[in-house]
Amino acid sequence: MSRRRALVRYLAARLGLVPVMLWLIASLVFLLLRVAPGDPVDAVLGTRAPEAARAALRSQLGLDQPLLSQYGSFLLDLLRGDLGTSLNSQEPVSRIIGQSLPASLELGLTALLLAALLGLTVGFSGIARPEGRLDLAGRLYGIGTYALPPFWAAMVVQLIFAVWLGWLPVGGRLPPTLLPPEGTGFFLVDSLRNGLATGHWQQLGGTIRHLVLPAGTLALLLSGIFTNALRLNLRRALASDYVEAARSRGLGEARVVLRHALPNALLPVLTITGITVASLIGGALLIEVTYSWPGIAARLQEAIAQRDYPLVQGIVVVVAALVVLVTVTVDLLVALLDPRIRF
């Protein structure tokens, strides 16, 4: 079979699995929320609420229906993009998520970019002398950044740079004196556009000043993954036959590393990036809470504290779906980029 056809078949199989995985996740969340001990009605109203109020809430949540028809309408609503209504604010869950998702994405993407820059630099710097002091430092850096509890790292950074030195704000997305910019919800983009239109740059400055600490902390935590991945793969590439061949042809060491070893070591790093996204979300969840960043994680924490079942369900389904999509996209990218990959 030609490589092209094999590639197309692989892509089709991988993409075909996406709806199945999404359906599994949605079903899992649905099932967990119904089967788990603890009645949502008790959780919201307390056990001593009058029976009429309990019955009303029960029918509002659709809990008086048989389980199978609840499941059916849950899936149908999901297909139409309807995630239900928040118990607390009576707003559609999809609108709440739509409002807070850009904040999380802005933080996550900035952090991912910084993490890649920082982590790859640290990982690459140890390569000149494997097992040397710099290489060992890189290894320690990888383990150390992994072992840092995200929220504690955030608190320490906050304490040093915001409380003691006073260089940067403690939390939030904008100074309280400024109105949030209208538009996409990505404040960097929106305030840049406003700045270009009006010539006032306080909004952009405020956005960046508020972004530095959360994104920097998250980047620091994630950079270790990149450092480790690059270190291991680069070492493997440098020990391979084609690098040996390149050396024996008399090519300079810099050229061997940069042109022959590095490109091959970077591809697995792309795979790692896909995996990182999942842990990015875990770390981001805690960092958002620490910096009172008004993203999806802060919303989830609120929803948990208020026992807002539909909101918890909606956020989990949306975040999980995002993770699945990113993971599959990265897999596909790697398959497209790497000519050696076998299917």
Partner: peptide, 24 residues
Amino acid sequence: VLLMDTLYTLPVLLLSVVLAFLLG
């Protein structure tokens, strides 16, 4: 395998947050 792979894809903290929320 499909079930476990799906569980594995989910962010660790997200999954345990949901479970801890449900279990009390």
